[in-house]
Structure formats: structure tokens, C-alpha cells
Nucleic acid binder design. Sequence first.
DNA 1: GTCTATATATGGATAGAC
DNA 2: GTCTATCCATATATAGAC
Lengths: 206, 206
Amino acid sequence: MEKDKLSTESIIKQAAMEVFLKDGFDGARMQKIADLAGVNKAMLHYYFSSKDVMFEKIFAEAMSDLVPHIEKIMNMDMPLIEKLKAFVRIHVKQQIENPKLAAFCFNEMGKNPERVLSQMEALEPMQRTLKLFFAQYDNEVKAGKLVDYSPMHLFTFIQGLIDYYFISKPFFESYLCPNHAELSTDFEENLPDQICKFLENALTIK
Amino acid sequence: MEKDKLSTESIIKQAAMEVFLKDGFDGARMQKIADLAGVNKAMLHYYFSSKDVMFEKIFAEAMSDLVPHIEKIMNMDMPLIEKLKAFVRIHVKQQIENPKLAAFCFNEMGKNPERVLSQMEALEPMQRTLKLFFAQYDNEVKAGKLVDYSPMHLFTFIQGLIDYYFISKPFFESYLCPNHAELSTDFEENLPDQICKFLENALTIK
DNA sequence: GTCTATATATGGATAGAC
DNA sequence: GTCTATCCATATATAGAC
């Protein structure tokens, strides 16, 4: 029933994803994508008209991968801290599977905001979720359950606890921790627990 | 006494820093650097032999800017939490002055580790400091003063609290928070206090 | 749909006058 | 030390055969 052969288009897309994530827009070479996909360079232009168009598609996909099912979690009926823990786990898992995602997205946004601004509908759920987060946080702070921070700062901190390790991974690997390669699996496995513990201590009132 | 005119070399260096930090190695154009410095393209090759050599110099400087006086702090006689607070303040201040530093360094390390690995002596103090940090943390945990985390995770968390906002700034600015520009000064001013509070709650045993 | 061959542009680098 | 002019390699993109 299913097609055993992936379509050429999807093979190219996958190769493009890999190369763009590793090299960025400026560093990516159409030839490299073609080689990786096992097709000719001209094929890339047949399926995607230009490097720019191709990149937009890839970037949009990367963004939607980066913003996972947070809205679903946020709409459940739970204490905020439990939602945050679920958020941490799902997000870390996502990034273990695809460690370059966050760095890639932030970076390309910084380099060329215009190229990227078009494909931003993916983020609407995130904005809505953010409002829900602020509302619930405000409630639970007033109820004396959570420590009172500036909500926007807190949001940044949570994201940072999750993303930062993956963004700084090249640094760990190439220099700070030369034997990091062997340790990284272990480190990444324990990351969600450590973040949750850290978050809980920082947030809950004892 | 001082020379009113900066040397051409230092003007070029400054322009190169600006362009490399904004565009990255792959996106940077020698022509753009020359224009910004107000000199001819050929001058860049006169002072720095090639784009690669130029980049190495700039990167080394960026790295040494990013790793400030942490060793001095770490060698003082203070409870760890006080050292961390001092570390937060100095580091945030540094990044407010030069917000692209962290993203630039991590990014280039990820893209091309080899190009960058040569100029890494700047980081030796950081490795030493890291050991001191681990030792003192271990002591104070055993003394029942601090919460027990995995030291390496904790280190990552602290760095993340400081750096992440600046790395993700393009994201805030272009999308998540459209009016971020007017709010950012305020946000950045309060950042050290919020981080310190967060850290203290997460770390100290009450 | 897929390939080869080629057009066109651009960017890093150099030669050489002043 | 600084400029102009130019070389040469490389990258995107297209034309056109199969």
C-alpha cells in the first residue's frame, strides 16, 4: 500500500534540512545538498525554484518542529509546575532527537529576519500559549503557591534551561569538556530531571 | 599625547568585528568590511593576509571578551552563591554591551570547529575556574548549605540563565514580542536581579 | 523527470601604479 | 600605505538533450 520509494522531492527536502541545519543558509551549498540526496543539482531547481525558496520551506518546517505540542499541555487542567515539567520533558526529548534545531532557528532569525518572517504562522499557538501561561502564573502567585518573578523573565529562564545546553553543545564538545562525547548520552538522559528539580526549587514556595 | 587618529589596522579590525558578528564567517563580505572601514578592499589583504586569518583574530578577541574576569571572582573568599551573583552581574553587563557575542561564538564553533580551535588558549582560565567551582560547590553541598544537583548540569543552567536571552533576542524582537524594542532596555536592566533571585531560590536550602 | 553543459554573477585575492 | 584594475575560483541558476 505505502510507497516503498520516497519521492525524490522528499529525499531532497531531507537532504536540504540536514545541510541547512549544519551549515546555515550562507554556508549551505546546493551541490552538497544534491550530492547528499543522490541527485543532480538541476533537480533542486526543478522541485524548488531557488535556494531562497527551498530555505523558506525548510525553515518553516524546522520552526514547527521546534514548537511542539505545548498548546495541548497548556490547556490541560493541572498546576502550572506540572505543566512546566511536562513541557520540559517533551521539549528536551525533541532536541535530543534534533540537537541543532534551536541554534539554527535563532541564528537564521538573527542573520536575516526578513527571509524568515513570512513563515511565522507556526508561532501563533505559541503566542496564545504564552498568554495562558502568564494568566495561570499570575493566579498561582496570588494564591501564594509560586514565587513571584517577572513573568517574561521567567519564561526566558525556562526556555533557556531547556535550549541552552543544545545551543552551547559545540563549545562543550570542542573545548570545555574534551571527553564530552562519551558523557553526552548520560548528560542528556538526566537533563530533564535536573531541569525539573531546578525549576521546582526556584518556583515553589516551601 | 594619544593619537587622535586610530590606526587603519584598528579601524579595519573594528569594522571586521562588526560585520563578522552580524553576518558570521560565511555571510561576511570583505567588501562590506572595507566599506564600513572606509578603505579599499585591497587594504584588508595588506593588513590581514586573508579572510580566514582575519576571522581568526576577530574570533579570538570575541572569545576573550566573552570570558571575563571570572577567575578573579572565583578566587575570592566568599560563599559560592555570592560569587555566582557577582558572576551574573558582570556577565550580563558584558552582553548588554555586546549582545551578539555569545550567539556568534557558539555558532562559529558549531559550523567550523577546526577554524576556531587554534585560538582557544583564552579558555584556559575558564577550565581552571570550572574546577574551582566544582570543588567549592561540592563542599557547600556536603555542608548542607546548597541543594545537590549534578555539577555539570548546574553549570550549564547558570550559563543558560545568563546567555539565553541574548541568543534568543532575534526571536523576541522579530516575532514573539513585537513591541520588544521599547521594552528591552527595561528587561535587560532587571535581568541580573531576576536571575540572582531565581538562582538563589533554586540553590539555597531554606 | 533526470541528466549534461553552460551562462552569469560574485567574492576573495593579487599585480602593479602612485 | 593606499589605490585601480584584474584574475580566478566558485556558486546559483538555466537551457536543452534524452
